[in-house]
């Protein structure tokens, strides 16, 4: 009986973990989208399985918790105003919301946005193709 519950719990955990991961990738892509002109991918697509494996293995609990909170908060806070989560807003609304969070008078909002921006940048920095493009490009 205990084993069955334990299995169910683990299944539930991995399912919710996968959902958080999908939501995190979506958020990273919104914070650092692809640049068509340069040919760089979005941070979300650069954050592949290897990236998350390394993150899970190395990140301290506080950072992992910070990312989960940031994903939830930044995804669902727009619901209060627009009745839709962040990824269902139109691009102009998404940009306005993220900029508002980055410049918010609330320290926590700024920090949560910074955590996601940091991870988005690090994720894109792991993409060999993006590195080559970004290091050589001239405006």
């Amino acid at each position: 009986m205990i084993q069955r519950w334990s299995l169910r719990l683990n299944r539930h955990k991995s399912a919710s973990g996968a959902e958080v991961r999908t939501a995190a990738c979506r958020l990273l892509s919104l914070v650092l989208p692809a640049n068509q002109e340069l040919g760089s991918p979005s941070a979300g697509s650069a954050a592949n399985a290897a990236f998350w494996h390394t993150f899970d293995r190395s990140a301290p609990l506080l950072l992992r918790a910070g990312l989960t909170i940031a994903v939830f908060w930044l995804t669902w806070l727009p619901f209060l105003r627009h009745g839709r989560p962040l990824h269902r807003l139109d691009p102009a609304q998404q940009t306005a919301f993220l900029q508002g969070m980055a410049q918010s008078r609330f320290y926590v909002h700024r920090q949560l946005t910074l955590v996601v921006k940091l991870l988005a940048s690090l994720a894109l920095g792991t993409d060999a193709g993006a590195r080559q493009v970004l290091m050589q490009r001239r405006p």
Binding site: L30, V31, L32, P33, A34, N35, E37, L38, S40, P91, Q94, T95, L98, Q99, M101, A102, T113, K117, L134, M135, Q136, R137, R138, P139
Partner: peptide, 14 residues
């Protein structure tokens, strides 16, 4: 910046 603004600024990295 963040979002599209950050993406545009990538060209400034070098």
């Amino acid at each position: 910046g963040v979002g599209q603004e950050l993406s545009r600024h990538l060209a400034l990295l070098p």
